[in-house]
Computed example of a mutant assay.
Amino acid sequence: MSRNGKDIIDEINSIFKRKPFDFEEAENLITQLDLEKAPTELETILLNNINNKDDDARIFAYEYLYYFDSEHVFQAALKGTSDEEELVKINAIEILGSMPRRESLPYLEKALNSSDSLVRCYAAESIGYVGTGRAKELLEERLNKETDSFARLGLYSALYNLGEKEMLECMIGLLDDDNYLTVIRSLENLSAYVDKTNKEYISKNIDKLLQHKIPVSVREKAENSLNEIESI
């Protein structure tokens, strides 16, 4: 590790020791590191702060533990699914999705039945990455009773990834949803699922969305998605 990298990590460690935790300063520092080659010293600091009493400190720790894949990180992610802070839960759930293991299913199942629709959405997506028969059963069981559009999107995406290609039509249908956050995330997912067989169909429906009166944020996302699709 370079001298500069060590200095940055030492500064991040010092920020964790201050009260309150300065999320913005820590984030500005960590972006100067090559997180694809994130050093173990940083992993240790992040793991040491998963129980920090400052919510922002825990959120930061879990957000950047995503770049590590040790057993300690996996166990920390299991613990994080029960944290009281929503963003900690979501970050922990995303870590489990990046390290798909059967052992995480009971934790993700609990998150899938959370009262928070965002948590349910991310839990569904991570369950989809686990990819076992039981994982698919959990998703289908939840889909039968899920009413929130954002959470349903997570279920559609997970089941699509598990081979249920008819879920593409369900995701297309959410482009007309009243929840604009659902629409934006639907655009993100659809862009990721484009291939030669569905490219024209997805493009046509995004173009159809652009013909409507929609918020600027949705329009920008739709236009960017079309540009991405056209470049494929």
Rank of each mutant, 00 (worst) to 15 (best):
E43D: 06
N49E: 06
T147Y: 04
L155S: 04
L108T: 08
A135E: 08
N227Y: 03
S231V: 07
F68E: 10
G133S: 13
S231R: 15
A57E: 11
K208Q: 10
E71F: 00
K165C: 02
E200V: 10
K213L: 12
K199P: 03
D34F: 00
Y193G: 01
G173W: 02
L175M: 08
E43S: 06
L181Q: 11
R219E: 14
I30A: 06
K53G: 02
I12V: 03
L29Q: 10
M167W: 01
E24H: 11
K204H: 13
A76I: 10
N224F: 09
D148A: 04
D176S: 14
E86N: 12
E24D: 14
N13G: 13
S98L: 02
Q75D: 15
L139Q: 08
E24T: 14
Y67L: 04
E223L: 12
G154M: 07
S203L: 15
G163P: 10
L112F: 00
V119C: 08
R58P: 08
N224Q: 15
I8R: 07
D7P: 00
N52T: 01
D116L: 04
N49Y: 03
N224H: 08
G97K: 02
S203K: 15
E166K: 14
R58W: 06
N52G: 04
D69A: 09
K208T: 08
D56P: 00
S225A: 15
E137I: 11
K208S: 11
M171E: 12
L190A: 04
A77W: 00
I95G: 03
L181S: 08
K213A: 09
T31V: 14
A92Q: 06
N205D: 13
I232H: 11
F23H: 13
K110P: 06
K136N: 14
K19R: 15
V119A: 08
I184S: 08
K196P: 05
R134N: 13
Y62S: 05
S82I: 04
L143M: 13
E36D: 14
K136F: 01
L143G: 07
E228M: 09
D116M: 05
E188P: 00
K196Y: 08
K79N: 13
S70Y: 02
L139P: 05
C121I: 01
I206E: 09
V130L: 04
I30E: 05
N52E: 03
G154E: 06
E220R: 14
E85P: 09
N227K: 15
R185T: 13
L108V: 06
Q32V: 00
E43G: 07
K208A: 12
E94M: 09
D178N: 13
L226K: 00
R142Q: 15
F60T: 09
L174Y: 07
L174V: 06
A151W: 03
Q75T: 10
V194F: 06
S115H: 09
V218N: 12
Y180G: 01
F16R: 09
L174T: 10
R101P: 02
N48G: 08
I184W: 02
D195L: 04
D7E: 15
A111K: 09
K136Q: 15
